[in-house]
Simulated assay, not measured.
Amino acid sequence: MSSPYFSELVKGIESVIMHHGYDMIVCNSLGGEHSTASRYIREKRIDGAIVIAQNIQNKLLLEAAESGFPIVVMDRELNNDHIVNVLIDDEQGGYVATRYLLDKGHRTIAYINGTFSSDCNLLRYQGYLRALHEAGVEERKEWRLSGHFTKEGGYQAAKFLIENELPSAVFFASDEMAISGLEAFREHHISVPEQVSVVGFDNIHLSHYVYPPLTTFRQPKTDAGQLAGHVLIQMLKGETVDSSYILNN
Rank of each mutant, 00 (worst) to 15 (best):
S244L: 04
D81P: 05
N58H: 05
I204W: 00
K221T: 14
P213T: 06
Y111A: 13
E91V: 01
F6V: 13
P220A: 08
Q234P: 00
L227Q: 02
A65T: 02
M235W: 03
V196K: 04
H133T: 15
T215V: 13
I190R: 01
I112Q: 09
P220L: 02
A158D: 02
L87Y: 09
H82E: 02
V199Q: 07
F171L: 14
P167A: 04
A135S: 13
P167M: 04
F6L: 14
R45G: 05
H148M: 11
P213Y: 02
S3P: 08
L62M: 12
G147T: 08
M24G: 02
G136Q: 10
M18A: 10
D175P: 03
A64M: 06
L101E: 05
W143V: 09
R186W: 08
D175V: 05
A169G: 09
E163W: 00
F201W: 12
Q234V: 03
V137E: 11
G154W: 06
A53D: 09
R39N: 12
R218P: 00
T240L: 01
R107K: 15
E139F: 05
I190A: 00
A178N: 06
W143K: 11
L60R: 01
V192M: 01
R124S: 07
H230W: 03
L232Y: 02
G31P: 10
A131K: 07
V51S: 11
Y245A: 10
A178R: 06
T115F: 12
G238V: 06
V72M: 09
L206H: 05
G12V: 10
V192T: 08
N28I: 09
I25T: 13
S180Q: 14
I13T: 07
E63L: 09
A184V: 06
I50H: 07
S197Y: 07
G94K: 04
E163Y: 02
E165T: 10
G12R: 06
L236Y: 11
V196R: 04
V72C: 09
T108Y: 03
F171W: 01
L87V: 07
S207T: 05
L232A: 08
L62C: 07
E14W: 01
T98K: 01
H106V: 10
K44M: 04
H230C: 06
Y40R: 10
H230A: 10
T36C: 07
D81L: 02
S118H: 15
R76C: 09
I46C: 15
S146Y: 06
V86Y: 08
P213R: 11
V86W: 08
I50N: 10
F6K: 11
G48V: 03
I179F: 06
T36P: 00
L60Q: 03
R130I: 00
R39W: 06
G229F: 05
I52W: 02
H82G: 00
D89V: 04
